[in-house]
Deep mutational scan, measured.
Amino acid sequence: MSGNGNAAATAEENSPKMRVIRVGTRKSQLARIQTDSVVATLKASYPGLQFEIIAMSTTGDKILDTALSKIGEKSLFTKELEHALEKNEVDLVVHSLKDLPTVLPPGFTIGAICKRENPHDAVVFHPKFVGKTLETLPEKSVVGTSSLRRAAQLQRKFPHLEFRSIRGNLNTRLRKLDEQQEFSAIILATAGLQRMGWHNRVGQILHPEECMYAVGQGALGVEVRAKDQDILDLVGVLHDPETLLRCIAERAFLRHLEGGCSVPVAVHTAMKDGQLYLTGGVWSLDGSDSIQETMQATIHVPAQHEDGPEDDPQLVGITARNIPRGPQLAAQNLGISLANLLLSKGAKNILDVARQLNDAH
């Protein structure tokens, strides 16, 4: 009898209710805020589980004197976190989706994509230029951005401005803007500013005609071990179906173009009346040469937790077992079709030249 009692006690200790789920994140304040929001949602869904947040620095956090596009290494903000995932030191990792490459290392998958916040870019102005827009900034004003995508589009749109690289986390960039006289304004992701509670610093939100956004911008991705079915089931509740389908289309477009950090590629997606609209573009580094096109596809946005595919093969690095396969494939095909259209119009040449120029500098 006593033996059975011990077995029952052991089973209770090993039951999922007692389990601590370890969540990996970057150390920056924004990353911690984003991770806290994901953990809060998981806690609400699984009140019996405990969650421990483990923060670590990544290569991208450490190399702050070089433009991201020049470092010449993929997975700048993800490699150390993936290493911890691989060694079973954490069970899942919360990322900004735009930091996750469209091809993940073997053994990993994006197990959830959370509801997207505003994906557009924002302009934050130096205190002396508050009330201005990019259009009304004085001639030769210097605007800071760490992104080739932003610089290429904005140089084309605002030729009277000069664009220079600015690195560091959000706090560091804002301090550089406010305390030094080098920059009249800087460009940042609206979602990051909003998550930090800095709505009052948003001086201008850039519309798609001015600057399309990065693939996955404004959404959070939760990376897990691809074979860890328990954790895949656990994080599945975080999937937002519309965000998922938009981001599958965007990531398929980028992957098929073979774009990345070192080339200016941008997108804009919208879901309306059962249609998914995808606009994508590529630019030369100075913005003088560009190709942009829009395509659409009829896609039914499923309700969360309709029964999805059981075999769960990944699409552009994403596993969404609780979302039907048909809409996911339709979104992926839309991204591939748009990429093929741009490639047929000469996108590869623009991107190759951009890559060579970026590598040469």
Rank of each mutant, 00 (worst) to 15 (best):
R251M: 10
K227D: 14
T279H: 05
F77Y: 08
S57V: 13
H83A: 12
S75K: 15
P101L: 07
A297G: 10
T298Y: 10
Q34Y: 03
V130I: 14
L177A: 05
Q217R: 02
P302V: 13
V301Y: 09
R325C: 07
G192W: 01
K115D: 13
I291N: 09
S147P: 00
Q194P: 10
S69T: 11
I53P: 15
F51L: 11
C247R: 02
T133E: 12
L206D: 05
Q304W: 06
V38G: 02
A122E: 04
L315C: 15
S146F: 11
Q332P: 06
L357V: 10
K27G: 09
A360P: 02
V282S: 05
L85A: 06
Q204S: 15
A270Q: 14
V124G: 05
I33T: 12
K27L: 10
S284N: 10
H239W: 00
E210S: 05
T269Q: 02
S146G: 11
P127T: 11
H305C: 14
I318R: 07
R150E: 02
P101K: 00
D289F: 14
G60L: 00
H207Q: 12
A347I: 03
L64G: 13
V224Y: 03
G131Q: 14
T102K: 02
P106F: 13
D228T: 03
G274W: 09
E117G: 11
G131L: 08
K176G: 09
W283P: 09
G197I: 00
R175A: 11
K27P: 11
S45M: 06
I166R: 04
T58I: 04
R116T: 04
S288N: 07
S146A: 09
G111L: 01
F77H: 03
R164G: 10
F108V: 09
G144E: 05
E179A: 14
N169F: 05
G203V: 14
R321C: 07
E89D: 12
R164I: 09
S37G: 08
G218V: 05
L64D: 07
F77A: 04
E250A: 06
T136K: 12
V222P: 00
L154Q: 09
K345L: 12
V202C: 12
L148P: 15
I166M: 13
H160M: 14
R19S: 08
I53V: 11
L92Y: 03
G335Y: 00
Q314N: 14
E306S: 10
S165V: 09
D352K: 09
E80K: 09
T294N: 14
Q229D: 14
L206A: 03
L276D: 03
F129Y: 14
G197H: 03
N200S: 09
V23R: 01
Q34S: 10
G48M: 06
V222W: 01
I63L: 13
L174R: 08
S57P: 07
K74D: 05
M271L: 13
D307R: 04
K98R: 02
E162G: 09
G197D: 04
P264L: 06
E135D: 11
Q180W: 06
R255S: 12
K348C: 01
M56Y: 03
L254G: 00
R325A: 09
A297C: 15
L343S: 06
V215G: 14
L104P: 08
L278K: 01
V237A: 02
I336F: 10
A320H: 00
G218W: 02
T133D: 13
L206K: 02
I33M: 08
S344R: 15
R32T: 06
S262R: 15
Y277T: 06
K98E: 00
S141H: 11
Q328V: 05
N340F: 07
L193Q: 07
M271T: 06
M212H: 14
H120T: 14
R251H: 02
V123Y: 03
I231G: 06
Y213L: 03
D36W: 07
L154I: 05
Y46N: 14
L234H: 07
N349V: 09
Q328R: 01
E80P: 07
D65T: 09
D307C: 10
V130R: 14
A40E: 11
D121L: 03
V124R: 03
L148H: 04
A55R: 11
M56G: 06
G24F: 01
L76Y: 07
P127Y: 01
N169C: 05
S45R: 11
S288T: 10
D286F: 06
I21Q: 00
T58Q: 04
F163C: 11
A354N: 02
A55Y: 11
L134F: 06
P208H: 11
E310N: 00
T145V: 10
T279P: 05
V267T: 15
R116P: 04
T133F: 05
E306T: 03
V20I: 10
A151P: 05
A297Q: 05
D286K: 06
D307Q: 04
V316S: 08
L276A: 04
G218R: 01
I186N: 06
G335L: 00
V143D: 04
F108D: 01
A347W: 00
M295L: 13
V90L: 12
L338C: 08
K87F: 09
P101I: 09
K345F: 15
T66P: 13
L134G: 04
S141D: 08
M56C: 04
T102D: 05
F125R: 03
V202Y: 08
G48R: 10
V202D: 09
K79D: 10
Q204Y: 08
H120C: 12
L81P: 06
P302I: 02
T133Y: 08
L154A: 06
R225E: 07
Q217V: 02
E52R: 13
R164C: 10
P119M: 02
A331L: 02
S57F: 11
Q292K: 05
R164Q: 09
F129K: 04
R355Y: 08
T59V: 07
G168E: 02
R150F: 00
Q29D: 12
Q194A: 13
D359K: 05
P47M: 02
A40T: 11
W283Y: 13
H160K: 14
R355A: 03
E242F: 15
T172Y: 10
D178R: 03
L245Y: 15
V94M: 00
S147L: 00
W283A: 03
D121H: 03
E162K: 14
T145D: 02
G107V: 10
D289Q: 15
N322M: 10
R325S: 09
E135K: 05
G72T: 08
N169A: 06
R195F: 05
I299Y: 13
